[in-house]
């Protein structure tokens, strides 16, 4: 089952999240195992499988990175498992700088302020590579689009590391 078809949505990166959420809930109301609590074992199993798939489809389309990965995967580019590395020197340099910035954050005088700056840089880069992905995908340049997704993966990874650091600094 194609995820976009499941929710009756056009195959494009820009997804109306409210529509997606709404349709997800309508479908879950039909297939969720709770509807079959009194059903036979096979029926329950079928419901669990369906509901799992619907949950997975929703989680995939809900998150921008997962969505982009899924879109290129449909065209044969498995970004998550491919071994091919990024050869874009400028991008790699930028990554190293960001990583250093993140490492220095903890010891900076005002870590919260530094974090804010870091987040705003990350946000700009996410926009940059998302736009790049969109352009490539629309031109059906799937290999290039996959490369943009790879870059996005790096950026999102940095973002989650920054969030982990924030947790640590704020003493959760």
């Amino acid at each position: 089952m194609r995820y976009f078809d499941l929710f009756d949505l056009p195959v494009q990166f820009d997804v109306d999240l409210l529509t997606l959420q709404d349709r997800f809930r309508s479908i879950q109301k039909q297939v969720h195992p709770d509807k079959f609590a009194n059903g036979s074992d096979q029926q329950k199993l079928l419901a669990v499988q369906q509901a799992s798939e619907v949950n997975d489809a929703y989680e995939t389309l809900k998150s921008p990175l997962n969505r982009a990965e899924y879109m290129v995967a449909e065209h044969g580019h498995d970004v998550k498992h491919e071994q091919e590395t990024i050869k874009d020197g400028a991008f790699l340099m930028q990554q190293m700088e960001l990583r250093e910035e993140l490492e220095d954050l903890e010891s900076s005088n005002d870590p919260e302020q530094a974090l804010d700056v870091f987040y705003s840089d990350i946000k700009k880069l996410i926009k940059l590579y998302t736009d790049e992905f969109n352009v490539n995908f629309d031109k059906q340049e799937y290999k290039l689009a996959a490369m943009s997704v790879k870059k996005l993966r790096f950026i999102y990874k940095l973002k989650s590391e920054a969030e982990a650091l924030e947790d640590k600094l704020l003493d959760y």
């Binding site: 349709r23 109301k29 039909q30 096979q42 079928l46 419901a47």
Partner: peptide, 21 residues
């Protein structure tokens, strides 16, 4: 009964997804 009604259950589920949308 479960075996023989299995395709029906699956069809019903597909149908209900369509209906929902």
């Amino acid at each position: 009964l479960d075996d023989i009604s299995q395709p029906f259950a699956a069809r019903r589920m597909e149908d209900s997804i369509k209906q929902a949308l």
